[in-house]
Design a binder for these strands. Structure first.
Lengths: 252, 252
DNA sequence: GAGTGGTCTAGACCACGTC
DNA sequence: ACGTGGTCTAGACCACTCA
C-alpha cells in the first residue's frame, strides 16, 4: 500500500458510513471517545479529529459534557428570493412579518430576537457597499435571532446615518411594519438587491454567541438594498451551516 | 480572571489582528510553527489549531512542505443570477459561453475543464429533486473546472435518462452551444430555477480533487432547472469557500 | 539536506451536564 | 460523584518543497 489515507480520515469514513447507512440513526448517541480509541486503535487526538470532521459536515452534534449524537436534519430553509405571488408578499409585509419569521413559523418554530443598536464606523467592506466616504459613521442594527429560545443566526443591518437617524430603525425593538415598508415610507423604497453568499469558519465571537460546535462553518449572506442606484441598506446574516440553507427561486 | 479565552483562540486573534492591520501583508510568509510556539509559549498542537482557524477563514494558505503565507484575496465572483440585459445574455449563450466561463474570463483567468460522463443511480436527494421513481438511473455529467490549470470547483449535472440519452450531453466534451440552448432545442427549455446554497466541510474526495487546505469549508450550490413544473436538470457545484463567492442580483 | 508542515501518541487537567 | 467532551503538552516520525 503506497498511498494510505490518514487514520483520522479512515475513522471519519467509517463513522460516516454507519450514519448514512442508518446503522446509527438520528438521535442515537455515538460511543464515547475513549471507546472509539479502543475500537480503532487510535489515540484520542486522532479520534477527535475524525469527529470534528463529522461535526463540520453537520452529521453529529457536539458540546461539552454531553455525549455526541447523530443529528436530525433540522436545517431551516430560508427563502432569500421567493416565488410567492406579489399579492402574498404584500400581504405578509403589511402584517410586518419579515421573511425569516415567516420561514420559522412555516417550520413550526417560535422566533424571537435580541436587538442592539449602535452608531459606529462600519468595516471597510460595508462602507464600500454603502458608498460612504471614509470615516463616515453608520447605524448598525444587530439582531441575534433565536428559534424556540435557542440562538440561530446573527443579522446586522447597516444604514447610512442620514437615513436611519430619528426613525424607528434606531429603537432596539421590533419595527412594527417591518423595515422594508418603513424605508418605502421614508422615500427610500428598495428597488433591487444584490446578494452575496460566502462561507468561512466562524470567528470566536460568533462561536460563542451562536453556540456553534467546533468544526462547523458558517454561511455569510450579504444583501445590499438599492433605491435606484443608491444603496440604502446592507444586511449581513451569519448562518451556522448545520442549521440553515438559503434558497433562491429565480426565473430562467 | 474567571473566564479566560482558550489559548488557541488568543493566538488566532493575535495573528488575525496582525493580518487585518496590515503588519503581515498579503504574500508575506508567517513565522514557522516552532517559532510561534516560542513566541506564545504554547505547544505545537495549540499553535496548529490557531493556524487551522485562520486557514478556515481564508486568511492564510497552508500546504505540506511549504511555509504558510498571508493569502491574497483571489475569490472569484460567480454570478448565479445576473442583471445583465436579456440581449447580452442571449448573445453570450449564442456563443456557447456559460456563466462560469464568462466570470473567469472577466477575472482575467483561463478556464478549462475535465469531463466524465456516467449513468448511475443518483443519490436520494438528487432523485427527489428530479422527481425520479426509486431505482431509476440518471445521467451524471461531472466537470472538474480549472482556472489557469489549477482545480477550482466541481460541477455535477444530473439529467433524467430519457432527456440526456442520445444527445451531446452524454459526450465527455464541451457542448458547443451550451446545455441551456441544447435543452431548449430538445423542447425542454428551462423556465425557472430553484437555487439552494449550503456549506459544510469538504469530504475527503473533494479535499483531494480540489486540493483544499485543511480547515477550509466548501459552499454547495444546487440549481434545479424546471421546464414548467417538470425538473429537467439538477446541477450541484462545490466551491471551496476561499476561492469563490456567489452573487445573485434580484429585483425587490 | 535542511526546513517546513502533516500526522500521531500517551498522557494530563479542566469544565460541563446528568444523576 | 461520575462520565462526558474541551484543552493542552512534549515528544516522535513522516512527506513534501526548495535551495
Amino acid at each position: 500500500m503506497v498511498s494510505e489515507r490518514p487514520k483520522h480520515a479512515e475513522i471519519a469514513d467509517d463513522l460516516r458510513d454507519l450514519i448514512t447507512r442508518g446503522m446509527l440513526a438520528p438521535g442515537d448517541p455515538l460511543p464515547p471517545e475513549h471507546e472509539l480509541c479502543d475500537t480503532y486503535g487510535a489515540s484520542r487526538g486522532t479520534v477527535r479529529r475524525a469527529l470534528a470532521a463529522l461535526a463540520g459536515e453537520g452529521l453529529v452534534t457536539n458540546g461539552q459534557g454531553r455525549a455526541r449524537h447523530v443529528r436530525h436534519d433540522r436545517r431551516l430553509t430560508f427563502h432569500a428570493s421567493s416565488s410567492e405571488s406579489r399579492a402574498a408578499l404584500e400581504e405578509r409585509r403589511a402584517r410586518g412579518i419579515d421573511a425569516w419569521v415567516a420561514d420559522v413559523e412555516a417550520h413550526g418554530g417560535h422566533p424571537s430576537q435580541q436587538i442592539t443598536i449602535t452608531i459606529e464606523q462600519p468595516p471597510a467592506e460595508i462602507a464600500e457597499l454603502l458608498q460612504l466616504p471614509a470615516g463616515d459613521l453608520a447605524a448598525a442594527r444587530r439582531r441575534l435571532r433565536l428559534i424556540d429560545g435557542h440562538p440561530h443566526n446573527l443579522n446586522t443591518s447597516w444604514y447610512p446615518r442620514w437615513i436611519a437617524e430619528g426613525t424607528p430603525i434606531m429603537q432596539p425593538a421590533d419595527v412594527p411594519q417591518g423595515v422594508s415598508v418603513l424605508l418605502a415610507d421614508l422615500r427610500h423604497a428598495q428597488t433591487r438587491y444584490v446578494d452575496k453568499v460566502t462561507a468561512r469558519m466562524p470567528d470566536p465571537d460568533e462561536t460563542r454567541r451562536l453556540r456553534i460546535g467546533s468544526g462547523v462553518p458558517v454561511m455569510v449572506h450579504t444583501r445590499t438594498g438599492y433605491a435606484g442606484d443608491d444603496p440604502v441598506r446592507v444586511a449581513v446574516t451569519v448562518w451556522p451551516a448545520d442549521r440553515a440553507q438559503i434558497v433562491f427561486e429565480l426565473p430562467a
